[in-house]
């Protein structure tokens, strides 16, 4: 994306950060969601409450954590609670407005697989698994998902239901007795997607600057639906871009700096 002055990944992170508000209480997944949440906190949403599953509530890290339990998260948190309390009182108790997840495999109904590629009992690739995701996906009031588009990642049928999105679509959540909204937003490196109000299938509502419909389809394993009135995502502002790049530079320096190269 040389001509535009920003990369597709930067656009993805910044578009995701814009979806978060000052009053949100956000359960943050590691990786792309973590970057987006902290850019939001450092730009338009300084009051946002960021929660990581290690029990750190209201954290404000200066660098992005490598794991969900880096010391920086605890040092800057309003409070740090035990893991059972995290999942019982705060997540199950209905205190989380947005669960922000990444995905290895995603289908058009927002169901996520991070468990296995292939058969569960004889996997071709054993992935790390769900961690907190199965309950984040059903106990948070709504779910945002962010991932870079690939045909391997965005598939017609996922190999395993690590966390439930809209299932087979329509009212599948309600039929299972799940009363939260589920996935309401998908931000990729190419577009912004929202579920169709009736079918719950993710539909492209906004293309990032310079992106074509064809590019979105070529990097997606299902037949993509586009909204009738398609927006163009506003490009990153100078402040957004500077905030993200500074954060990533600080992060890189911090993680390399604690390495063995500097020892002895």
């Amino acid at each position: 994306m040389s001509g535009l002055g920003f990369t597709p990944n930067e656009m993805m992170t910044i578009a995701a950060s814009r979806a978060l508000g000052n009053d949100d209480v956000c359960f943050v997944g590691i990786g792309a969601p973590s970057a987006a949440c902290n850019v939001a906190r450092l730009t338009h949403a300084p009051g946002i409450t960021l929660i990581y599953e290690s029990g750190t509530i209201g954290t404000a890290p200066d660098v992005l954590p490598l794991s969900i339990g880096d010391g920086e998260l605890c040092e800057t948190a309003v409070t740090t609670v035990a893991v059972p309390e995290m999942f019982r009182y705060w997540l199950q108790g209905g205190r989380i407005s947005i669960g922000f997840l990444g995905a290895a495999q995603l289908d058009k109904f927002g169901n996520i697989n991070t468990t296995v590629i292939g058969d569960y009992f004889h996997p071709k690739t054993r992935l790390p698994g769900g961690g907190g995701a199965p309950e984040i996906a059903t106990s948070s009031k709504e779910i945002y998902i962010t991932m870079a588009q690939t045909r391997r990642g965005m598939v017609e049928k996922i190999d395993f239901f690590t966390s439930f999105g809209h299932g087979e679509g329509g009212d599948h959540r309600q039929r299972l007795g799940i009363d939260t909204a589920g996935p309401t937003l998908l931000i990729t490196d190419l577009a912004i997607w929202r579920p169709d109000p009736a079918t719950k299938e993710f539909t492209v509502v906004s293309l990032h600057p310079g992106v074509t419909r064809q590019q979105v389809q070529e990097t997606c394993g299902w037949m993509v639906k586009f909204a009738a009135a398609l927006d163009e995502t506003p490009p990153p502002s100078e402040l957004e871009l500077k905030t993200l790049r500074d954060l990533q530079a600080r992060t890189k320096a911090a993680h390399e700096g604690s390495g063995k190269g500097k020892a002895a």
């Binding site: 199950q92 199965p134 996906a137 059903t138 439930f164």
Partner: peptide, 23 residues
């Protein structure tokens, strides 16, 4: 987390709102 807590509490099992729709 619930299972450890139940273990500490001397209970045979843990009960919670979970695994809905999960494989």
């Amino acid at each position: 987390a619930n299972a450890y807590e139940a273990g500490a509490a001397g209970l045979p099992c843990a009960v919670f709102r979970g695994y809905r729709g999960a494989g």
